[in-house]
Simulated scan of single mutants.
Amino acid sequence: MSVGGTLTRRSLFVGATAILLSGCAATARPTPKPVVVEPPPPVKGSVPAMYQAMPNEPFPIPEVNVSEVDPKFWRQEVDYPTQERPGTIIVDTPAKYLYHVLPGQRAMRYGIGVGREGFAWSGRAVVAYKRKWPRWTPPDEMVARQPKLEPYSIKNGGMGPGLKNPLGARALYIHKDGKDTLYRIHGSPEARSIGKAVSSGCIRMLNQDVVYLHDQVRDGSPIVVIPDPSKAHLAKS
């Protein structure tokens, strides 16, 4: 067979293959629009990049023990229809979620730990200011309940920053009508507290999450704290 003949058969073969492939492409179903889904359960021994160690912090933050955090409480962007303007923080106390509202009816969602019964706070306020590696000064009422905290009282200057500081790596300070509510959004190394009611009123987050949130929020941003209906009579508004 001549070279020309070989090329002709090859051309016919390639052409036929192209027709078949184009036929598959023409009859394929359109790609469905992506939807937000819960992250898969963690593979044993694996840690998502967002929860890995942060060695460059002034006090290096260890990786999160993700086995102690239900995957539904991992940080993720979700659809979130709301009338609140972008930049608003919404704390859904009953669901144990914090939403930072984004444009386009979207929000970044975080799992949180909230106040125990009797210490819950709800209402509208603002994030007056933020602090990296803040000092912790328990209010006098807390010191009265827990005398062992006296060394860290306001008069004694509080507790210095560090991994053992209850405010963790970052804190957002909540004010209402120009006054400090004494409630904070802050970090915590206690992964197992996320999704539970464990703190004395403050809103706690994983340290990695509060570092990320801190960088996204501006001073003066509005915050809305939704009360737990079952404890509405105990909430301070």
Rank of each mutant, 00 (worst) to 15 (best):
A191H: 11
V225Q: 07
Q105K: 08
E63I: 13
K196V: 10
E190K: 10
V64I: 04
G123A: 04
N65T: 12
S221L: 07
Y80I: 02
I112W: 03
W133T: 01
Q52M: 14
Y129T: 07
E68F: 07
Y80V: 03
A232L: 12
G168T: 06
R109K: 14
L182K: 11
R170S: 10
S199E: 10
V78M: 12
L182A: 15
Y99M: 00
R145S: 09
F119T: 09
I90N: 02
V224K: 02
N65E: 11
D219V: 02
S193C: 04
D215R: 15
A53V: 07
R85C: 00
R218P: 00
R124M: 05
W121Y: 10
A26G: 05
D180Q: 04
V224Q: 04
A95P: 02
W74T: 11
M159W: 03
A128H: 12
G115V: 01
P166R: 03
G118L: 07
G157D: 12
P138H: 07
V225H: 05
P134Q: 02
S122M: 03
P58D: 11
L167E: 13
P189K: 00
R85M: 08
V36P: 01
D219H: 03
V37Y: 04
A197D: 04
P48S: 06
G4Q: 08
I154G: 12
G104T: 06
D215N: 15
Y152F: 15
D177N: 14
P39W: 07
T27R: 10
V43P: 01
Y99S: 00
G87Y: 09
Y110K: 08
T8N: 14
V211K: 13
S122V: 04
N56L: 14
